[in-house]
């Protein structure tokens, strides 16, 4: 372990406890838009996005996940994973009809990965939702521990809708990223 690492602990440690941060999404689980009858709905799917950094842990992630998750703390969500994408990133996809349980599972997997010293590989947790019949995603950036909405619209994004959702998030006390950090995510695999 390097000197700096031994002094400061793991690099790029998330700013705050994710278990509290991710649970904030429950505040918009089933919400109506202030100016219409349209709803924001959180669906039963989410994912943990990791930057593999060519770490051997991600070479056979199925086996790796089984090894790190203790039997006394079972994962209740169905877990699928995409080995890697064009950005050499790994998606661990969770499916659970109960959002709170899904959040618990993401936190469980996240903390085990962090305990292995791979905390810096975790990029974001992404929840799938629906807004005005459009599939939407809420991204929780692990570097900043803040959320932002992502509403794909064909090859583009519906930025206007994203801004509206961002305002609703803020009104519900969810920490929201500055607009300049609302990065895109193409080919989300769920």
């Amino acid at each position: 372990m390097g000197l700096l690492k031994s002094i400061f602990g793991k690099r790029n440690k998330p700013k705050s406890d994710e278990s509290d941060i991710l649970s904030a999404i429950l505040r918009v689980e089933d919400l109506t838009f202030p100016d219409s009858t349209d709803k924001i709905t959180v669906l039963s799917k989410s994912a943990l996005l990791l930057n593999t950094n060519d770490d051997p842990f991600f070479k056979n992630i199925d086996a790796s996940l089984k090894n790190i998750l203790p039997e006394q703390q079972p994962i209740t969500s169905e877990v699928a994973n995409i080995e890697s994408d064009e950005y050499d990133s790994c998606w661990i996809v969770f499916e659970n009809p109960i959002t709170q349980r899904m959040i618990n599972d993401i936190n469980s997997v996240s903390s085990h990965i962090a305990n292995l010293g791979l905390g810096s590989t975790m990029t974001a947790a992404i929840f799938k939702g629906v807004v005005k019949n459009k599939p939407s995603y809420w991204v929780c950036n692990y570097r900043t521990a803040k959320f932002y909405p992502l509403v794909p619209d064909g090859d583009r994004r519906d930025n206007e809708m994203e801004i509206k959702i961002g305002q609703i998030f803020t009104s519900k006390g969810i920490p929201v990223e500055p607009h300049a950090n609302w990065y895109s995510l193409s080919d989300i695999p769920f």
């Binding site: 996005l49 930057n51 994408d85 950005y87 990133s89 990029t123 974001a124 991204v139 950036n141 994004r157 930025n159 994203e162 500055p178 607009h179 300049a180 950090n181 609302w182 990065y183 895109s184 995510l185 193409s186």
Partner: peptide, 8 residues
């Protein structure tokens, strides 16, 4: 202000 770049 919203960027087009991918988070990854």
């Amino acid at each position: 202000q919203i960027p087009e770049k991918d988070l990854r």
